[in-house]
Design a protein around this nucleic acid. Sequence first.
RNA 1: GCGGGUAUAGCUCAGUUGGCAGAGCGUCAGAUUGUGGCUCUGAAUGUCACGGGUUCGAGCCCCGUUACUCGCCCCA
Length: 414
Amino acid sequence: MHISRPKGTIDFLPEDASKRRHIEELLRNAALLFNYSEIRTPAFEKTELFRRGIGENTDIVSKEMYSFSNNEFTLKPEMTAPVIRAYIENSLYNIAPVQKLYYIANMFRHERPQAGRFREFSQFGAEAIGSGDFRIDVELISFCNFFLNSFGINNFKILLNNIGSLSERRLFLEDLKDFLKGHETALSDDSRRRLVINPLRILDSKDPADIKILETAPVIFNYLNDDNKKHLGDVMNGLTRLGIVFEVDYRLVRGLDYYTSTTFEIVSSELGAQNAILGGGRYDMLIEQLGGKPAPAIGFACGLERLSMILEKNSYQYPAERKIDLYIVTSGDIAREKSLDILYSLRSKGILCETDYLNRSVKAQMKEANKLGVSYAVVIGSQEIETGTLRIKQMETGKEEIITFDGIINYKYV
RNA sequence: GCGGGUAUAGCUCAGUUGGCAGAGCGUCAGAUUGUGGCUCUGAAUGUCACGGGUUCGAGCCCCGUUACUCGCCCCA
């Protein structure tokens, strides 16, 4: 029996890796345009960071973390807490009052894999720290809209909500609980359980009976203070101004404890059950909670596997890799030895070249050259060694040109 | 943690009522001495996921296990 990769992990074979590199490149370009700077943090952190950041009672912390060394460290299950840790630890607020950071990194969660969900997965995300201005909310959401569009994706929905501060949410939660208790017998089993553990999540239920009940449930908007109501209105106006289509969804809640005020999610019908491409929101209290000087902040995280699933569904045309310029066909020991320094010289000049390492027939080597899609091929055998000249063949036209050995190095490969 | 589905060549998959293990693609080689694509010929690659059971005989039927996969939960 062979050893297989761990459940929920991915091998990126050369073609997949090439696609992923392209995705990352477009994302980095978008980040550059919106003036977000890259941040990289360790693959693991002190477990305490996630306990305090994400929340002890979330599923992520209570049962999905990969922890080790007597539970002292944990592979990062999300990136916001590490970014904020780095922000505080390195006093980034002293460098500039507003920090706009982005990352592309791998996360780890011990979950049961399914479509669009893995145990090791990649996220592209950004955090804007230091401003509570509605315009940074608009900018961040427009950033998401922009990079999705840059892949030609436009079949998605932007869902927007404002979940208020902790105190507003507490009041809402009490009323929601009271309301749901009145309908307890009609609720799904899952939702009855959630009523005790996390009633907010019932708003997200997929059960048709639950959805019916929720139609008359209390609405969080009515519990927001004037500031948050205005903030939501401002964000809506801002997005409208940019021509960005969105939907306000008062039932949109997020699963991590640190969110406050603005929350948003982008969903796609192309994805299956896990339909969120990205999710994010404000977390104005988190920095203080983690021991930093209070600062408002907003961020999002986008699942790269989900993004590439959509691209596959859309038959996205990935750009071709750079082709090999020259294939060196060799025949005989002297030629094979000679090929060593020719290859090295060519590569030193930035020319992509390859040769055969199996001592195969000239015909087999030409086939190989053709398969690789090289632009030129040259045969080096005893004749060429004797005369000091060789013929370089343009593969597409089949035309040959006579050149010297030095000529290979200086040839204009187009 | 709980459910549904699937498992045959490197890949995509056929395999009838239980009766010799298959196709296409890919790989490799050959088709007159040292030249690719097209075509033709040939070759290699299998613990039919694993372990039991039924049967004269199991890829096929039954039981168990594992893996993969899609859902629930939760989330990107």
